[in-house]
Deep mutational scan, measured.
Amino acid sequence: EALLLQRRRVTVRKADAGGLGISIKGGRENKMPILISKIFKGLAADQTEALFVGDAILSVNGEDLSSATHDEAVQVLKKTGKEVVLEVKYMKD
């Protein structure tokens, strides 16, 4: 459990079709971090076996998301290339 509370760096390699394969919720306007709300089976994020629903995305390719709005986070995630480095931390409810 202590492991979950540490920052983790996960590299996601996207397939030619399909994006990261995650849905996010939260954002500055909700006074919440950007959280992974869904991981789609078989897509890139799922294949890492290292990302979990409830993980907060702290940064994407080094771009800090700690004070991002939901829309800003969506845009940052959309413009990523084939390889995406996510810094995440599991957030307890």
Rank of each mutant, 00 (worst) to 15 (best):
E87N: 05
S23I: 11
R7W: 04
L35S: 07
S67V: 11
A45Y: 05
I22E: 02
D16E: 15
E49Y: 09
D55E: 02
A45H: 05
G54Q: 03
L58S: 04
D55Y: 02
I57Q: 04
V60G: 02
R13D: 10
I39K: 04
K25V: 14
D64S: 11
K92F: 12
D55A: 02
L20T: 03
G81D: 09
G81V: 06
K89A: 13
T11P: 05
L58N: 00
K92A: 15
D71Q: 11
A50L: 12
N30S: 12
K14N: 13
I36F: 03
E87Y: 07
R7Y: 08
V88G: 02
I57S: 02
G18P: 09
K25P: 03
A15K: 13
E87A: 04
I57L: 09
V12I: 15
D71W: 11
I57N: 01
Q47W: 06
A50H: 08
E1M: 09
M91K: 06
L58I: 10
A17Q: 13
V10S: 04
N61T: 01
K92L: 15
G26A: 03
I34R: 01
D93H: 11
G27M: 01
G19C: 05
M32N: 04
E49I: 04
R9T: 15
I22P: 01
S23G: 14
F40P: 08
L4P: 08
L20K: 00
S67F: 12
S59W: 04
D16Q: 14
F52K: 12
A15L: 14
F40N: 12
V12P: 01
K25G: 11
L4T: 09
S37M: 06
S37A: 13
F40L: 10
A50G: 13
L51N: 03
L65C: 07
I22V: 08
T48P: 06
G27N: 04
K89F: 08
D55T: 02
L5S: 13
D16I: 09
N61E: 05
V12F: 05
K92D: 11
A68C: 13
A56C: 10
K25L: 14
D64V: 06
S67D: 12
I22F: 13
E49K: 12
H70Y: 14
Q47N: 13
D16G: 13
E72W: 06
G26H: 00
I24D: 04
V53I: 09
R7T: 14
D55V: 01
A17G: 10
G21I: 02
V10A: 04
G21A: 04
V88C: 06
S66T: 15
D64H: 04
S59V: 06
E63V: 14
H70Q: 13
V85I: 15
G26T: 01
E72Q: 14
L51M: 06
A50F: 05
I22W: 03
T80I: 13
A15I: 12
K38Q: 12
A2N: 15
D71L: 11
A15M: 12
L51Y: 02
E1L: 07
T48L: 01
R9V: 14
K89T: 10
I24L: 10
V12Q: 00
I36K: 03
E63A: 11
A17T: 14
R13W: 11
E72F: 07
I34Y: 01
I34H: 04
